[in-house]
Design a protein around this nucleic acid. Structure first.
Lengths: 349, 349
DNA sequence: CCTGTCATG
DNA sequence: CATGTCAGG
């Protein structure tokens, strides 16, 4: 654990850092990424079918005259700089703890897409993953860079769900699941206990097409709410991950047409509101109450990411008692490797 | 139907044409293929994952220093000439009918792989396909070049089996299946009646891993044998396709280790022998009784095609009465687009 | 290894 | 439009 600095109480002024400017070159430091995916020793192989169905426009042929072509939804664009956050000054001192969270949509694909390079550049103290889609015994070593301890939880169903956590500092304790058998088969929750807080990484159940799992989701929400409050009796809680809900209209591009879509139903939003009303802070919205167009997820279809048709589904939610420690809450929408982008929380704690 | 020339009886001399030399440049005519797969208007797309898992070595990067890399098992190698057969002189006159047969292992992939270009170059009068793996309503138009009529039969199970036939000359009649309900659900047989013969295109059931379907295969063989003999009462028969059996040891690279493998069991070989003994000719083996290393199928794994570790599974089998019309029987092992290569039968009929 | 499918998002 | 899975070969 990085040095913990107890903060003097100061007024709640949101840092001037603007998340939607993250893609500008002003955000420093930036690191130019050289894609080594293709040079990695990998068996030469055959069929161009899937390839033809997919990327015409990858790093390799970026020079081609595909000016009109859509740029990739997944891979770090060529000659682009990989966003990293600096340990911004926060109320007069540097933040001491950097947390990241990322729904990586398949850890193997994410590695192939170069997503794991992000960790080495960003150097978060802790990073949380959702949607491993991989049995924990099959997780490639590349997923755990030097200096991190890793904790993985996969669901019973192969290739479905799964969460993980990389941490530079050894936690006091790590628990898998929430201790309720019927909600612990899908690999959705890891709780890591640190000195000053619990970190709860979650992949909250998606309500599904036609909301087929909405009622299950509501059950889960209820039980999970209780779980968080139990933890909080002992220590402040940092709850993060893909919460599969956009809280308010400002949190997605098309609120009006999505009131019956998983992720923006009244039920999901209300459940989320209830938790927030019960002593938790949505760190990003707390710092940037009016910030529009700040999304963490874009559908793969119809060039949604290019057009920034997205949803804010990924959060760092903190016990109110941690309010004073919040330095910044970032959405790194210029980082590729999944249909979600990573989010970062900077704390002075 | 091309002009039908009745042949004078002559002695059975196999033409000097050597199938294993087909990849040499001596085989003419050849046509240099320019790959247009990549220029086809196709939506620009995203993920390099499947791509990375697959071709490092495709036409585009053939110039790269991948000298050691395996060349593709599927796609026409860059700057290679696509084999075509000439209408070889046959007993003093040109052959009048060119038939082709190809297990294309998924007609959509085959098109993407450039397989359909073969037809326009080769210009067979009739071409038979096996393993469409595609509902007949979803078969792309590109599968039927100008000048051909097409007939498709798909199995009940989506993405499984299926056979087809393109023909320049309209058949007198076309029948789907063999008229035995229990054997007509998998899209395995089309019978096209022409003036001088029946053409029967088949995808004979694979006996499966661990021979789980061997007994079904034997049933099918029995019923199908009867079917052929029934047809023959009316007209000579040309039976072609993927017969899923290598007849003798000479017909596969590793006969010794494959006696319990689907395609080279005693049961399959004996059934095939029985049909041949019942008045049919294996055109290729008839012309080239000692020709080794002549295969029509190579497993996708372990660079089997490059190393020519293969099986002869595709045949033109003719009623003995057609013996005198056989001009040549070719295995076009330099033509790519599937794990099988096309075969060609040239007749003077 | 490569083709399809299917469920999930 | 991606990620997985699985059967089939």
């Amino acid at each position: 654990m990085p040095k913990v600095t107890k903060l003097k109480a100061t007024q709640n002024v949101a840092p001037k850092r603007d998340v939607t400017e993250d893609k500008s070159d002003e955000t420093k430091p930036t690191v130019t990424i050289v894609d080594k995916t293709q040079t990695k020793k990998r068996k030469a192989s055959a069929s161009p079918v899937k390839k033809a169905k997919k990327a015409l426009l990858t790093n390799e042929d970026d020079n081609a005259e595909n000016a009109e072509g859509a740029s990739t939804n997944v891979k770090q664009p060529a000659a682009m700089t990989l966003q990293t956050s600096e340990r911004v000054s926060c109320k007069g001192e540097k933040s001491t703890l950097k947390l990241a969270s990322w729904n990586i949509n398949g850890i193997r694909a994410w590695i192939t897409n170069g997503g794991s390079k992000y960790i080495e550049k960003e150097q978060p103290d802790i990073i949380c993953f959702q949607e491993l889609k991989c049995d924990k015994d099959k997780i490639p070593i590349e997923a755990t860079p030097a200096g991190y301890k890793s904790y993985w939880l996969s669901g019973d169903q192969a290739g479905y769900s799964g969460v993980g956590l990389l941490t530079k500092v050894e936690p006091i304790d790590v628990k898998f699941g929430i201790g309720v058998a019927e909600h612990d088969t899908e690999g959705r929750v890891i709780t890591a206990e640190y000195d000053k807080f619990y970190l709860v990484v979650t992949y909250i159940p998606n309500s599904g097409r036609k909301l087929v799992r909405l009622s299950y989701r509501q059950q889960f929400n209820r039980v999970f709410h209780t779980y968080l409050k139990e933890l909080e009796k002992k220590k402040p809680v940092i709850w993060c991950g893909d919460l599969n809900v956009s809280h308010q209209s400002i949190d997605l591009t098309n609120p009006k047409t999505n009131t019956k879509t998983a992720g923006f139903t009244k039920e999901e939003r209300d459940d989320f509101s209830k938790i927030l009303a019960d002593g938790f802070i949505d760190s990003f919205r707390y710092l940037y109450p009016d910030k529009r167009d700040a999304y963490t997820y874009w559908a793969y279809f119809r060039n949604a990411r290019q057009r920034n048709i997205g949803w804010r589904l990924d959060y760092f939610i903190l016990s109110s008692s941690l309010q004073e420690t919040i330095c910044d809450s970032l959405i790194q929408n210029g980082v590729y490797g999944s249909d979600h982008c990573p989010i970062v929380l900077l704390l002075a704690i």
